[in-house]
């Protein structure tokens, strides 16, 4: 097992709906998708975003795209127009998720 940052094996894009941010996480190489499914759980993402996400985290799987979609509820200080944050639409949360470190089998 090797400890690797998600940014080495995945890319991402994030956006908003009201006070919920979505973060799509995509394996750069299809062989890493099962590792993402196993390691990047809703619980771990909630923990990772503990300073940012005050609500629950939901996870959806898109095996056809080698991607996971996360919904981070209550994460934008009220959402787009209400928010006082520098990033009121969570546009940079994609990169924030890529900071996470996970265990990747050596043969991958």
């Amino acid at each position: 097992m090797a400890r690797r940052k998600l940014v080495e094996i995945a890319h991402a894009r994030s956006g908003d709906k009201g006070d919920t941010a979505n973060v799509g996480l995509i394996a750069l190489d299809a062989k890493h998708y099962p590792v993402l499914v196993g390691e990047v759980t809703a619980e771990r993402v909630k923990q990772h975003f503990s300073e940012i996400c005050r609500g629950k985290v939901e996870r959806f799987e898109l095996p056809n795209l080698g991607a996971l979609n996360f919904l981070l509820h209550e994460s934008l200080d009220g959402g787009g127009t209400i928010s006082l944050k520098a990033d009121p639409q969570g546009k940079t949360y994609s990169a924030a998720l890529l900071r996470m470190e996970i265990d990747v089998p050596d043969d991958l």
Binding site: A12, R13, G15, K17, N22, G24, I26, F60, N69
Partner: peptide, 16 residues
């Protein structure tokens, strides 16, 4: 494929 995948996931909720 990466450029369109990123956009497909943009502002996505339940993918189904």
């Amino acid at each position: 494929i990466p450029s369109v995948k990123e956009q497909l996931l943009y502002e996505l909720g339940d993918p189904r």
